[in-house]
Computed example of a mutant assay.
Amino acid sequence: MHKVLVVDDEEILRMLIVDTLEDLEGVELRTAENGRDALDLLAAERFDLVILDYMMPLMTGIEVLGELGDELKQKTAILMLTAKAQEADRNKALAAGARFFMAKPFSPMELMHVVEGILSDSGSNL
């Protein structure tokens, strides 16, 4: 069973992501509406993938990555999902520890395929 944490301050977007991914076999989904809640969940549970919004109140996705230890970043695939789609934003997210980057708006089917690929590739690595 793969555990996926969806972190986004926009409830409608969280619901869209959950609705898109809930039919994937062997995937358990959890959500957090801000970076602080995400850090609490990540301290308490092990996730295979975190889908992390870049721009959130309280704590940005980059700040969340800055709080995560290197070991957790190595064991957890992090997909930065953001409207900040400039090359500099991508580079900043990857440098902070995200392994994958996807721009908003996105196709739900594309997201599903990306997540399937990440989870299938990470099965032996995580």
Score class of each variant (00 low, 15 high):
residue 10 E to R: 07
residue 11 E to C: 03
residue 12 I to Y: 08
residue 13 L to A: 05
residue 13 L to R: 07
residue 14 R to L: 04
residue 15 M to E: 14
residue 15 M to P: 06
residue 15 M to D: 14
residue 16 L to Y: 03
residue 16 L to S: 03
residue 17 I to P: 04
residue 17 I to T: 00
residue 17 I to S: 03
residue 19 D to E: 10
residue 19 D to T: 01
residue 20 T to Y: 09
residue 22 E to C: 13
residue 25 E to W: 00
residue 26 G to S: 09
residue 27 V to T: 00
residue 28 E to F: 12
residue 29 L to R: 01
residue 29 L to F: 02
residue 30 R to Y: 15
residue 31 T to W: 05
residue 32 A to D: 06
residue 32 A to V: 00
residue 32 A to Y: 05
residue 33 E to L: 07
residue 33 E to T: 06
residue 37 D to C: 13
residue 38 A to R: 02
residue 39 L to D: 00
residue 39 L to I: 02
residue 40 D to F: 11
residue 40 D to N: 13
residue 41 L to S: 08
residue 42 L to F: 14
residue 42 L to I: 10
residue 42 L to H: 13
residue 44 A to P: 06
residue 45 E to R: 11
residue 46 R to G: 03
residue 50 V to K: 01
residue 52 L to T: 01
residue 53 D to E: 02
residue 53 D to V: 08
residue 54 Y to C: 00
residue 55 M to L: 15
residue 56 M to E: 05
residue 57 P to C: 10
residue 57 P to I: 03
residue 58 L to W: 15
residue 59 M to A: 11
residue 60 T to K: 07
residue 60 T to A: 04
residue 60 T to C: 06
residue 61 G to A: 00
residue 63 E to W: 14
residue 64 V to M: 02
residue 67 E to D: 08
residue 69 G to I: 04
residue 70 D to L: 14
residue 72 L to A: 12
residue 73 K to D: 05
residue 73 K to N: 06
residue 75 K to E: 15
residue 75 K to C: 14
residue 76 T to P: 08
residue 77 A to M: 12
residue 78 I to K: 06
residue 78 I to P: 02
residue 78 I to S: 02
residue 78 I to T: 02
residue 79 L to Q: 10
residue 79 L to W: 09
residue 80 M to Q: 07
residue 81 L to H: 06
residue 82 T to A: 09
residue 82 T to M: 07
residue 87 E to H: 10
residue 88 A to L: 08
residue 88 A to Y: 09
residue 91 N to Q: 15
residue 92 K to L: 10
residue 92 K to V: 03
residue 94 L to H: 02
residue 95 A to Y: 11
residue 96 A to V: 03
residue 97 G to K: 04
residue 98 A to Y: 05
residue 99 R to T: 15
residue 100 F to C: 09
residue 100 F to K: 09
residue 101 F to G: 02
residue 102 M to H: 06
residue 104 K to Q: 05
residue 104 K to C: 04
residue 105 P to M: 10
residue 105 P to E: 04
residue 106 F to R: 05
residue 107 S to H: 09
residue 107 S to M: 07
residue 108 P to R: 04
residue 108 P to W: 10
residue 110 E to Q: 14
residue 111 L to Q: 06
residue 112 M to Q: 11
residue 112 M to T: 07
residue 115 V to S: 01
residue 117 G to I: 05
residue 117 G to H: 07
residue 118 I to A: 13
residue 120 S to D: 10
residue 120 S to F: 12
